[in-house]
Design a binder for these strands. Sequence first.
DNA 1: GCGATAATCGAACTATTAGTACAATAATAG
DNA 2: CTATTATTGTACTAATAGTTCGATTATCGC
Lengths: 208, 208
Amino acid sequence: MGARKKEALEQFNRDNILSAAKELFETKGVEQTTMDDIAKYADYSKSTIYVYFKSKEDIYNSIVEDYTDVLIGELEVCIQDSSDFEDSYYKMCDCLVSFEEKYPKYYASLMGEEKSTNSRKKPILKDDKVGRELTGLIQEFLEKGVASRKIRADIDLQPTVLYVWSAISGIIQVAERKKDELDESLNMNKKEYLRYSFRTFYESLVRR
Amino acid sequence: MGARKKEALEQFNRDNILSAAKELFETKGVEQTTMDDIAKYADYSKSTIYVYFKSKEDIYNSIVEDYTDVLIGELEVCIQDSSDFEDSYYKMCDCLVSFEEKYPKYYASLMGEEKSTNSRKKPILKDDKVGRELTGLIQEFLEKGVASRKIRADIDLQPTVLYVWSAISGIIQVAERKKDELDESLNMNKKEYLRYSFRTFYESLVRR
DNA sequence: GCGATAATCGAACTATTAGTACAATAATAG
DNA sequence: CTATTATTGTACTAATAGTTCGATTATCGC
């Protein structure tokens, strides 16, 4: 078999395994999914799975990387394709919220909860690609704000990037965690609460 | 044996087991600590451990409850013992940061990361005692702000409570996660960054 | 098509760890 | 001293990640 075809076949197998794992991880949860589950669902033997991936962790990490790229790509569009600062901001927020709702487990993982698919082992500290790319994007966003005079030019950009990120991610996290209470005691659904919080934060950010 | 003495003895044993588990959980991590570890360190047989606690989860939950009470108590002091609004705010922030630094695992757990000591099993959704008590405290805090005219009286208190909580917890979480990057690229240590962020947020909160 | 090579499979294996069962032993009450 | 109770040790089960390896099947070069 030609090297080209061989490589393609390998890619095909890897993709099959990954997409099976992806589905199972999303529906059953990562830790509740066993290697035997993945093998069965992907229609390979377990031994073959281990030919293509060295561990469950390895599979998981590959998937997370895919999601990272998707999310970062979407956020880039929000920030770069929009000429208006306020518009960028709300698009960015929406984009993060959608991602969180669609893939909560991966969102949690990307956003820095300790990553481990096998809790008996120490979690591996991975280099924080999302974190770095995200702060890059937010910096770009803030620079746009400064350029359009929405944000004071004398702010200290670097820590403000993190500050903005703290607030946005905090808002999303709390909204998700408290969504049931919101309905009950606040008479406000998650969406409304998010709008309120994002707006409040936006207004605290731009000069009045 | 009198019922009184028996009860005291049981409490003694339970406490011994809990304090051993507490130490191990703090040093090795919860999931890296086995029931055999706990038994050995507490100097009981595993069977006896299971007389006093029905599962590892049970031990863990008892410990978390203790920590919850400690944290809530400390926060109450911050808010209630301080007559100045700004003072309350910074004390509250410091208190949360100290707790996070001292007991990062428990902080993460209290603050809502999925709780499970045995990742093969589905995490149990516990009723969010900290959450409820915390929002109560923050509401009290904001009411003080309104009373002292530091905060506009026409704000919608309920969602603002969550909004404030989002920001503070977000700031702490990001500071912890990025503490290494802070040193390197921002030329700012975690403490300085926290001060900057808490101050920025405080100023966005009070009327100017 | 044929024989060699490589991919895949299946099934049994190890290691780890929560949790259980139970009989033996130690401590205590009366 | 005896009966009860608390504690222990040991050996078990179940679940699951990961390994091993000989058997099987597909594919390639000729």
